[in-house]
């Protein structure tokens, strides 16, 4: 890239200053701090610390509670990601196809984007309420005695349902805009070649949506791992007990409530490594995607 740029020694430095100052103090300092404290054991009353090497990490790997949370996070992330992506894709394909009411449908299907995750959790508490929750009553028709906050599986179900509900709109927006950017000529050619709508979808539309889908896959994994904190905290009413929790929630519970700073920092570092791996994977795939678009 060649840019006919301005040359000035101090102006660009001044322009970059706010950004660099903010990230130095509130990004690099904390990140370095987390890295450092993951190798130390903090005194719970704030008197000093001892270097313990990798012991925070080894105790994580051997902790049953941690591996339980890790497996739950994997399970939770997979279901939330695929659930919300497939529902959103179905809705986007249909919203792209209909002529009447297309705009109304778009508005109706996207506004939940602006609902905060913990408020979505409050709505979940209503839906699954023990005495009269509409969904709880509905499940009771099939003999399913839904017990939110008591039964491990039921609580996980409620968290997943609310998290999917909250995430469908943003996926819908991206899929719809991806569909609308498919050139008309391609669609018409496909229409001549293939009469079956399902066949057209899988042969033409789906591959053309692949870049959007891949971008969303990564976004959704990050969402399920990090942004669902508000949903989980409200659904659990702040009382994890024996209920399922994700890794981010565990960082918070152990570090902020349990005061185990070293262990919690080690957990943060594990999460950082996971996110970094995910991002590197994403960049490599994006480089590859240039070839087919």
């Amino acid at each position: 890239m060649k840019r006919a740029g301005f040359t000035s020694a101090w102006l660009p430095a001044m322009l970059l200053l706010p950004q660099l100052a903010v990230i130095a103090i509130f990004f690099y300092w904390p990140a370095a701090h987390a890295l450092r404290s993951s190798f130390y054991l903090q005194d719970p009353f704030g008197f000093g610390e001892t270097f313990v090497g990798l012991s925070n990490f080894t105790s994580l790997l051997t902790s049953a509670a941690y591996s339980r949370a890790a497996w739950f996070t994997v399970f939770f992330t997979l279901i939330v990601t695929f659930g919300s992506l497939s529902i959103a894709l179905l809705l986007a394909v249909k919203a792209d196809k209909v002529i009447r009411g297309a705009k109304t449908y778009r508005t109706l299907l996207m506004w939940v984007y602006a609902v905060a995750p913990p408020v979505a959790g409050v709505i979940g508490l209503i839906m699954f309420n023990q005495s009269w929750g509409p969904l709880k009553e509905f499940f009771a028709l099939f003999g399913w005695d839904f017990k939110l906050g008591v039964n491990y599986f039921d609580t996980a179900f409620a968290m997943i349902a609310v998290s999917i509900w909250k995430q469908v709109p943003v996926n819908f927006i991206f899929f719809l805009s991806g569909l609308q950017s498919i050139p008309k000529s391609v669609r018409e050619a496909a229409l001549i070649d293939n009469r079956s709508a399902t066949g057209r979808f899988w042969d033409i539309t789906f591959p053309l949506l692949a870049p959007t889908g891949f971008f969303l896959l990564i976004t959704n994994i990050t969402y399920a791992m990090f942004d669902t904190f508000g949903v989980i905290d409200t659904v659990l009413k702040g009382q994890p007990g024996n209920n399922p929790m994700t890794l981010v929630y565990k960082v918070y519970v152990d570090g902020f409530r349990g005061n185990d700073l070293g262990g919690s920092s080690a957990q943060s570092v594990v999460l950082m490594v996971l996110v970094l791996a995910l991002t590197v994977f994403q960049f490599r795939m994006i480089e590859r995607r240039i070839h087919y678009t």
């Binding site: 660099l20 509130f26 990004f27 904390p30 990140a31 960082v251 950082m272 996110v275």
Partner: peptide, 22 residues
């Protein structure tokens, strides 16, 4: 690079150290 590395780590993973800094 200094600026765009920050895109990699959401606040949630460095929440406690950020709290301590603040």
């Amino acid at each position: 690079w200094i600026i765009f590395t920050t895109l990699l780590l959401p606040l949630e993973v460095r929440i406690l150290p950020s709290y301590e800094v603040v």
